[in-house]
Amino acid sequence: MVKLDVNGRPEEVAAEEDMPLLWVLRDKLGLTGTKYGCGIAQCGACTVHVDGQARRSCVLPVGDVHGKKVLTIEGLAQKPEGGTVSSPVRLHAVQQAWLDENVPQCGYCQAGQIMSTVALLAANPAPTDDDIDAALSANLCRCGTYPRIRRAVHRAAAALKGEAP
């Protein structure tokens, strides 16, 4: 049994310790927003956060995250306080920026792109274009949404700054 916290919920999973976190999330916990793209940490489609740090879940054995906090794309938006399952959620500023800039095409890589961007903005709230190149060149997009991702990162950074107290 592996114990972990996923999107604020404690979970106990019957999984072999060397099973990648990606497949635990997708097949055991039904969280399919995190995607399989390459299985070798080349594309970043499987990016999640473990204790606040971006990780490639396709090469991360679930045994390594025992007792840790995992955040996936499904946990990024905020449910209102005391809300029910069907209550509308408030999207994270990065997700909203993705909608405002019409970023997604096929959309398959975007959960990973968004999780990497959230990690970028946590480390560097005002990234330059060079910073974005440094942070997001490890996430592939075959549809070529990079120019729009770049715009959305700047937009999200501005939005987060505006919301700060």
Binding site: Q53, A54, R55, S116, L120, A123, P127, D130, A134
Partner: peptide, 19 residues
Amino acid sequence: QNITRRSEKNGLPCATCHR
């Protein structure tokens, strides 16, 4: 992946992929 010494400052430390 365009990894440099500035990657970590931008939320992409080696440990993102390397265990």
